[in-house]
Simulated scan of single mutants.
Amino acid sequence: MQGTDTARNPLRSSAPQWAKESGRKVSVTLGRLTASRRLLPSFLVIGGQRCGTTALHRALIAHPVVAGPVLHKGINYFDLGYHHGPAWYRGHFQLRATARRRAAAAQLPLAGGASATPEPQAMESSGYYLYHPLALPRIRHDLPDVRLIVMLRDPVERAYSAYKHAVARGFETEPTFEGALELEESRLAGEEERLRTDPRYVSHSHRHHAYLTRGRYAEQLRRLYDGFDPGQVLVVASEDFSTRPEPVFAGILDFLGLPAWRPASFERYNARPGRPLPESLRRRLDDHFAPYDEELGQLLGQPPVWRRPPVSA
């Protein structure tokens, strides 16, 4: 069964909610029963939230050798659903035989011109894996050799985009972005510790209201590098993927060991319209993130894209 997103299955997107729920239950039950015949991810897109992960996910699952989850872009196993167990997780992915047939039909050459069919690779994407305090240790335990892709974006733009997204989805009731920023500290107080001590606890505010905290990328990357070899991690700037998609995507395929290929086009997804961010607030947020961006630059070995001076024509 091929499919991950409604863009690939218009019948699913138009189906009534009860039918979607019934189909989801059947798929999960069948997946669990056939878990040993299904793929496990060899790479994950782990965040950050509102940093272009959907666009990258869509481009990657279009690759003939890449198999995404059957139902959704993200399974949220390592953050929200870990108590379901490994068979439940594996049951969300494609049958190995199905993925192999798709890869063989594409007839993509391997590196060096070899003619053998490349082995399919499974993946999923979750914008919460990078930020949830238990996700990375769980990934390391269950998938120690997995490759991890992190997408980062100007944290000011990311924060405002996250707010607009939360409002549109009904996750945010505060009518102004500034008001939501003022509430953030109190909303998140004690939530990370509770997540650490109660593995089944789900924090609405930790997931949806961390506008500033999620943009402190250096803290999250340090936690990532503490658990994984840097060679397993690729950091991609959302701005680079937006402006130079072909070479950036080619570099991602090379990192993953996938045959060279490109989609017909690179699209943007989930953009949220809204009023421009007031310039005074933008400057204040830019100052807030400056020391965190400096730490990030030290980790990356160069300033992040949004802190580099513009290139003269």
Rank of each mutant, 00 (worst) to 15 (best):
A7Q: 12
Q17M: 14
W18M: 09
W18I: 11
E21T: 12
S27E: 12
V28A: 14
L44N: 01
V45D: 03
T53M: 02
I61K: 03
A62K: 11
H63P: 03
V65K: 05
V65P: 08
G68D: 03
P69T: 14
P69Q: 14
P69W: 08
V70E: 13
Y77E: 01
G81Q: 13
G81E: 11
G85H: 05
A99N: 05
R101Y: 10
G112K: 05
G112T: 07
G113R: 04
T117V: 15
G127M: 11
Y131V: 11
R138S: 07
R138K: 10
I139R: 01
I139V: 11
H141Y: 06
V146H: 05
R147C: 09
L148Y: 02
L152R: 00
P155R: 04
Y160P: 03
S161M: 05
S161W: 02
S161I: 05
F171W: 15
T173E: 14
E174H: 05
G179H: 08
E185M: 13
R196E: 07
R196S: 10
R196W: 08
R200H: 15
S203M: 08
H204R: 10
H209E: 07
H209D: 04
T213E: 15
R214P: 05
G215I: 01
A218G: 09
G227L: 15
F228G: 01
D229L: 04
V236F: 04
S238H: 08
F241Y: 05
V248F: 00
A260K: 14
W261I: 15
E267I: 12
E267G: 15
S280R: 15
L281E: 07
R282E: 08
A290T: 11
A290C: 09
Y292I: 09
E294T: 14
L296S: 06
L299V: 07
V305M: 03
P310C: 11
P310I: 07
